[in-house]
Amino acid sequence: MLTIEHLSKTYPGGKRAVEDLSFSVPTGEIVGFIGHNGAGKSTTLRCAAGILPFDSGQILIDGHDIARQPVAAKQAMAFLPDNPDLYEFLTGVKYLQFIADLYAIPADVRTRRVARYADAFDLTGALGSPIGGYSHGMTQKLALISAFIRQPRLLILDEPFVGLDPQAAFTLKELLRQLCRDGGAVLFSTHVLEVAEKLCGAIVIIQNGRLVRSGPTAAVIGDESLEQVFLDLAAEGPERSREGAQGHA
């Protein structure tokens, strides 16, 4: 569903955010994307979403090249950045209407989906109020609803659990699993390693813009916890970054 090949991105000023990164997200899989602060996770996700241009490499979404066929690729996916900023001057329902129009969702279908996901996240009653009055958690929920109503084949989420109450976090996990059972795929970044351990079928760990470990969750973790694996990798530092580029667990 998502294939990233030899992705490299350097910001103006020389900061190399991502270097020769390659991994894939197969259909039906939830893949956790882990890394320290500034490792290049958000950069990678934004490149995959077609928001950030990259220097070299290729990103394919459902067979469409994000650089050459952006409209087709974006039609198949939904992306949420961390701490998403939404249009504060719109009400919740008007924002969902706006998104539904951009993705050409028929009227009856969108009504059904909005009702389903707004109810799932317990946000229906607040949909008539301006987004400017929402709390951070409510905004996060609305952003998630706007992603799910599109029924994307690929869902890319940057730290989606931040700001969600426990009920909403549980709901999100269930919806992600359902999306994968229905033939979709999910790539999300998180710092909550316990969630990644329980939810993800595969893990990708990057460090200083390079891939250091990837594979099925059980294989990546081994006999330890994901937290211990992460800390061990962090302690090994840049050396590991270079070795990891050559071979993964």
């Binding site: 919740g92 009504t111 409510m138």
Partner: peptide
């Protein structure tokens, strides 16, 4: 913040 909790979802319309 002036968020109400009594909104009732009705049939939505579609446009381009």
């Amino acid at each position: 913040r002036n968020v109400r909790a009594d909104y009732r979802l009705s049939a939505l319309k579609a446009s381009g």
